[in-house]
Computed example of a mutant assay.
Amino acid sequence: MRALWLAEGGEFVPPTARDFDLGPLFLGITKPMLLVVLSVVIIAVFFLMASRRLSIVPTKFTFVAESVYDFGRNNIARDLIGSKEFTPFVPLIVSLFTFVLVNNIFGLIPIIQFPTMAHIGFPAALSVLIVYPLWHYLGIRKFGFFGHIKHQLVPPGVPKPVLVLLVPVEAFVKFFMNPLTHAIRVFAAMFAGHLILIVFTLAGEYLLLEASVPLKPVSLVSWLFAIAMTFVEALIQVLQAYIFALLAANYIAAAINDEH
């Protein structure tokens, strides 16, 4: 870490986006790639262990797993998609929520200390390669190709002269901006939060080791802010996982519901 702020004359150099460019560890495999695989293993083992010995009175471990599943099933999928059609999409919504959550929480785990979603490629892959193809598939299956396009771009009851302006805007938002913003929300939150933690931590180290004596006690203030921001970041990590799954459920609902 000291290499980040040591420059000529010991001047403090704040971290930048380059510090998120983690090179390959071996055979072209990077740390974020390993973390993604690790997250899948953790989630799979967690639910398999929780469901191995089910009973009427669940254990604390099983209760936690059931609470996570129930939250994704009822508070996200059923509330957004609707009680009649939500069931087939529960595995996807729960998987998105837990996958994003675990990869976000990696940013707070010692040694690992990197939120995978701070690399735009991972949330973009979830959004562009999974959620939005499914959105189109479901809409086309229910309404047909042209019916799906009309369903998304032409709100009911809008005067025809207004459609001249509304349709291009709706097309730009729904077919271009929505996939991007779906991924950018979680990416930006994880990137900015992790960068803030690095800044406060390194600033405290610099003030303690390199600053003049009167400024050394300020290092404690910097570290206290780093601790406080860690708790805030934990809250944001959970919230962003919820928002990502919530938006996915909302897009599915928009594709299959008659009213939107």
Rank of each mutant, 00 (worst) to 15 (best):
R2F: 05
R2C: 05
A3V: 08
L6R: 15
L6G: 11
L6C: 12
E8P: 07
E8R: 15
G9L: 05
G9K: 08
G9T: 12
G10E: 13
G10Q: 11
G10M: 07
F12D: 04
F12W: 09
F12A: 01
V13G: 09
V13M: 12
V13W: 14
V13N: 15
P14R: 14
P14Q: 12
P15K: 14
R18P: 00
R18Y: 11
D19S: 10
F20L: 03
F20N: 03
F20I: 05
D21F: 05
D21Q: 09
L22H: 15
L22Y: 15
G23T: 13
G23V: 07
P24E: 12
L25C: 01
L25H: 08
F26W: 15
L27G: 07
G28W: 08
I29V: 13
I29A: 01
I29E: 03
I29S: 04
T30R: 01
T30I: 02
K31I: 03
K31R: 13
M33V: 02
L34N: 02
L35N: 06
V36H: 03
V36M: 02
V36K: 03
V37L: 02
L38N: 10
S39F: 05
S39P: 05
S39A: 12
S39G: 09
V40M: 06
V41K: 05
V41Q: 00
V41I: 14
I43C: 06
A44Q: 12
V45L: 01
V45I: 04
F46P: 02
F46G: 03
F47P: 04
F47V: 13
L48N: 06
L48G: 03
L48D: 09
M49L: 09
M49P: 02
A50G: 08
S51E: 13
S51M: 11
R52T: 07
